[in-house]
Amino acid sequence: MNRLHDIEVYSPKTLEEALEILRREGDRVKVIAGGTDLIIQMKDGIMPRKNLLNIYSIDELRYIRMGNDSIRIGALTSFTDIASSALIRNYARILADAANTIGSIQIMNKASIGGNLVNASPAADSIPPLYVLDAVLVLRSVEGVREVPIQSFYRGYKKLDIRSDELLTEVRVRRMAEDEDGIFLKHGLRLGDAISVVNAALLVKWDGDDRFKDVKIALGAVAPTVVRARSCEEALTGKELNDSTIWDAASKVVNDISPIDDVRGTAEYRREMSVNLLYIGLWEIINKRNQAGW
């Protein structure tokens, strides 16, 4: 827990300046956005000490806008802003719900979506919703712009498709349609501020027949990266939905995950929680439709 007494901090005011510094310094600097992950990791020595590129004041990276068929979120946007945005609440509710569970109000006020994505904790709560919302990440450098689908952004545990001269500047998510519903689930060990033992996002598209035309499920904290639960998705798509079919489908998740033991829970517990959380999520989605009188 040593104080960061010997570190230089560059604080550009514009994106352009920031990219220029990144080009020049590359690996010699580390980007700091909200700092809620970085400061602890650097002080604890988990992350090597480096000079910092402070992007916290680049306000042009804070926005939530409606695009043509997507919602565009600036990388520096805080989870408080995401959780309270009418746009996100209306068209990407599961992301707003996830944002609301991130740490505490103090964390939400400072933590950015870009930081959550680049810090790449397997338990990061915004990532599963972004998976099922087909997020695209926009990476910029002085060389140009790259757009990377979220799934190919993550290549392994904290292995990312981002170059040292690139900054994540924007996240784009698909808008949820009228016939779609979804849920974000987080299982932590405390009702207050807690890191996920397992988290999951479910997104379903109803057909006219009370079945799912399409299902997307992503889980966190059960593999080196967030994973899609393809086996469950398959077992649910177009099938009759009742208590036993959703149990069976949820149980298939064990094929898609590879959890480990850590201080918050054993691999075995995480496997069981993955199944049970998906069951709860599916039950809630179906129950809501039944309640609505479909």
């Binding site: 604080s11 700091i32 700092g35 809620t36 400061i39 006020n109 400072k110």
Partner: peptide, 18 residues
């Protein structure tokens, strides 16, 4: 910080500037 509750332990001086 600008009216919003934040952790002063997770805020560096460069972020406080201005």
């Amino acid at each position: 910080l600008d009216g919003k509750a934040v952790h002063s332990c997770l805020t560096i001086m460069a972020q406080v500037e201005g």
